[in-house]
Each structure stands twice: as structure tokens, then as C-alpha cells.
């Protein structure tokens, strides 16, 4: 209990004084996860919408795979990305191993199935005739997609929050692909692992508190965005 208390006190000090190292790790974590989420959204949302409306043999199998991606062990994703980006791997020429780009790639792969599956579910949750109605009102494919996404706003925000949660809390894949290098590939989660391993529990707890604060804030923002839609 002493440890916990001193850890929290340490957290307060680090946050209060905007400790530069902690600040840069936190910012870096947000940037990396944010970019990964953005990429996952740009690709996953259109894919999810397409999947919701597609009709072709094998569609169910594709949907199954997409859902399975959500539960795919993230550390295995990390291993796969590592093997791909390793010098003698097929994508070694990119030179992304032990760089932020590698981490973003791994986190993107982790977040994409979540965004895609939950987008598809969100769209399928709407009245199936709605699409025809919008078409009949003269909407183009893009306009239909935007309108449907707005109609499914609550579910879509859940999707993005879930994807962000999965991505920002990832440890294993980020360590394997990023190397937890001080000043260049260290994020909050991997820093916590390091500090714990070193026995510096105060710092570990402090970082944990900060990570929790970030999680809560994101979820608070998500709830606010859902805002009026929830109140209906």
C-alpha cells in the first residue's frame, strides 16, 4: 500500500511538473496510436460499409475472418510484423523495424479489424430499407455512406473508442516491433514494463496513472460526442 501511495504521489509530481521525459512518452504514445487509429479508420470504415452491403459467394467467410481479427492475439500480430519488417524479411527494405513506423503498422493491423467489424455491425443495425430510401432521394454512394454513418453515430463512436482502447493499451507487439528504445520507440505501456522490470515501481505506477487518465479522457470525449444521440 505504501508503494501504491508513493507511486501515486510520484505520478502527481511527474504530471504536475510536466516532467519532460514522461511528457514526451505520453505525447508520443498518443501520436502513434492516433495515427494508427486514423489509418485504421480511413481503411476500415469504407471496408466495413462495403462488407455490410456486399453480396457475393464467400461473403460470410470474409465476415468471419474480419470478426476473428478482433480477437486475434495482438502479440502474434507483433511477431508477424517483426518477421515482415526484419532485415531478411519481405518488407525489410522499408527499414521500419525499431522505428515508430513499425509500431504504427503493427497498431494499425491491430485496430483495423475492430473498426471494420464494428462499422459493419453499425451499418447492419440500421433499417435495411434506409439505404434504398436515401438512394431514392438522390444520394450518391458517398452521400449514402456519410448519412448512414451519421445515423449510426453512437455505434460508430463505440467502434472508434474500442479500436483506440485496443491500440493504446498494446504492449507485446509494440515491444517486439519497436524495441522500446529510449527517446524513439518507447510508449507508455512499454515504459511501464521497463520500469517494473527495473524495480522502479514508483515510476511504473506514475506512468500507469497517466495511461489511465488518457483512457478516461478519451472515453469521456467519446461519451460527449455521442451526446445528444444518446439522449434521444
Amino acid at each position: 500500500m505504501d508503494e501504491l501511495a508513493s507511486g501515486i504521489w510520484q505520478a502527481v509530481k511527474l504530471i504536475g511538473t510536466l516532467d519532460p521525459e514522461v511528457r514526451s512518452i505520453a505525447l508520443f504514445s498518443l501520436q502513434v496510436s492516433g495515427l494508427a487509429l486514423l489509418l485504421a479508420a480511413i481503411t476500415g470504415i469504407p471496408y466495413g460499409i462495403w462488407l455490410a452491403f456486399s453480396r457475393f459467394p464467400g461473403r460470410k467467410i470474409l465476415i468471419g475472418f474480419t470478426y476473428a481479427g478482433m480477437a486475434f492475439p495482438t502479440v502474434v500480430v507483433g511477431l508477424i510484423v517483426f518477421l515482415l519488417l526484419s532485415h531478411n524479411g519481405p518488407l525489410g527494405f522499408l527499414g521500419w523495424l525499431f522505428t515508430p513506423f513499425g509500431i504504427i503498422a503493427a497498431q494499425f493491423l491491430i485496430g483495423f479489424p475492430v473498426v471494420a467489424s464494428l462499422t459493419m455491425a453499425a451499418i447492419l443495425g440500421l433499417n435495411p430499407e434506409m439505404r434504398l430510401q436515401l438512394q431514392s432521394l438522390g444520394a450518391t454512394r458517398v452521400q449514402i455512406s456519410i448519412t448512414l454513418l451519421r445515423e449510426a453515430k453512437v455505434a460508430m463512436i463505440v467502434a472508434m473508442a474500442a479500436a483506440f482502447g485496443r491500440v493504446v493499451t498494446e504492449v507485446g507487439a509494440v515491444i517486439i516491433v519497436g524495441g522500446n528504445i529510449a527517446g524513439s520507440t518507447r510508449v507508455l505501456t512499454t515504459a511501464i514494463v521497463l520500469e517494473t522490470r527495473k524495480g522502479d515501481f514508483d515510476s511504473a505506477i506514475a506512468l500507469g496513472v497517466i495511461l489511465l487518465m488518457i483512457s478516461f479522457s478519451i472515453n469521456l470525449i467519446a461519451t460527449r460526442l455521442q451526446g445528444k444521440a444518446l439522449a434521444r
Binding site: 433499417n127 431514392s136 432521394l137 438522390g138 448519412t147 453515430k153 434521444r232
Partner: peptide, 26 residues
């Protein structure tokens, strides 16, 4: 041409926004 279905299927917004929807599309 445009169609009205058996179900009104209004969007989750104000009446004005609903009625104005097709105009905004165009």
C-alpha cells in the same frame, strides 16, 4: 424521381433537416 416508402424512415435529426435532406444532396 423519388419514392416514399411504407415506413417513413426519417433521419435522427430535426424535421427541418429531414425535409431539407434531398435539397442538401443536390
Amino acid at each position: 424521381m423519388t419514392m416514399v416508402f411504407q415506413n417513413p424512415m426519417l433521419l435522427k435529426t430535426s424535421i427541418l433537416n429531414n425535409v431539407a435532406y434531398g435539397l442538401k444532396l443536390r
